[in-house]
């Protein structure tokens, strides 16, 4: 796939956010904060970082993407539609009966999904299994495995079992993102179950750790380049993000974790969409 430039990716991220708001409003249920916060990372991955062919989802030389926090799948669906895996109009079927876009991702329903997830804490292991296969069984150093986890799901023991495993086997083709947005359902992560010192935790498990602004496309791309260049350890990118990013009334508010906007809120959100600098990147980014 042709790699987009930074401004083009920023514009894609805005389109992805617009798609997310529209699809959630149409679904009448689903998660808003996480998907909006992850839009820049997904835009960077699918439109620049990953070596993929949306028209050929099972392409043998592709990079693979695992979503661990399955409830954030609206951002993956929106990104995949924008990338050409399926028609953008299909996004409005999200969570509806008969749709390929299940409320939480199901691999067999939609070509291009690599895993089924929802119950938290298992995506890093699945990605590690794939990365192990590439590194030790297939001995193919050209492909990479990307995985996105939420920060709340780091409460799960399964994650740290995987962290030990990937550290032990030095899975250098594994690139993990932690969406560090500091919220989970019952409140802030540090109130519910503190994660800090998060960088120190991953380092002590044998990982290379990069901390970035998860809304800065250049930082996202640079961090993944660095991860691919490191050949003796897995890399985790702790991406500091703003939950609900781009919609002023949703930003930082954990109450938007598991809630969709209603029609009126969606209208306001679509008018509100902006970039990190508070600027609308292009004309007509509104409704």
């Amino acid at each position: 796939m042709v790699k987009l430039t930074i401004p083009q990716i920023e514009q894609k991220a805005t389109e992805i956010r617009r798609d997310i708001i529209r699809m959630l409003a149409a679904a009448g249920s689903g998660h808003s904060a996480g998907p909006l916060g992850l839009s820049d990372i997904f835009a960077a991955l699918y439109f620049n970082v990953m070596n993929i062919r949306p028209e050929e989802p099972e392409w043998a030389d592709r990079d693979v993407f695992f979503l661990s926090n399955g409830h954030c799948v609206p951002v993956q669906y929106a990104t995949m539609a924008e990338a050409g895996y399926f028609p953008v109009e299909e996004l409005l079927t999200l969570r509806k009966f008969g749709s390929r876009l299940q409320g939480h991702p199901e691999r067999e329903k939609l070509p291009g999904l690599e895993n089924t997830s929802g119950p938290l804490g298992s995506g890093l292991s699945q990605a590690s299994g794939y990365a192990y296969s590439l590194q030790y069984l297939d001995e193919n150093p050209r492909r990479f495995v990307y995985v996105v986890m939420g920060d709340g799901e780091l409460n799960e023991g399964n994650i740290w079992e995987a962290a030990m495993f990937a550290g032990k086997y030095k899975l250098s083709q594994l690139v993990a993102f932690v969406d560090r947005n500091n919220i989970q359902i019952d409140g802030t992560t540090e109130d519910v179950m503190p994660l800090e010192d998060l960088k120190g935790k991953w380092e002590s498990f044998g990982w290379h750790v990069v901390e970035i602004d998860g809304h800065n496309i250049t930082s996202i791309i640079d961090a993944t380049s660095q991860a691919r260049a490191i050949t003796n350890r897995p890399t985790v990118i702790i991406a500091h993000t703003i939950p609900g990013k781009g919609v002023d009334f949703m930003e930082y508010n954990y109450k938007w974790h598991g809630m969709p906007p209603n029609a009126e809120q969606a209208k306001e959100a679509l008018e509100d969409l902006r970039t990190l600098g508070g600027q609308i990147t292009h004309e007509g980014a509104g409704v």
Binding site: S125, Q126, G129, Y130, Y132, S133, F165
Partner: peptide, 11 residues
């Protein structure tokens, strides 16, 4: 879960 990922990789 690691096995699930290995299976996705064709094992």
């Amino acid at each position: 879960t690691v096995a699930s990922g290995l299976a996705r990789a064709g094992k």
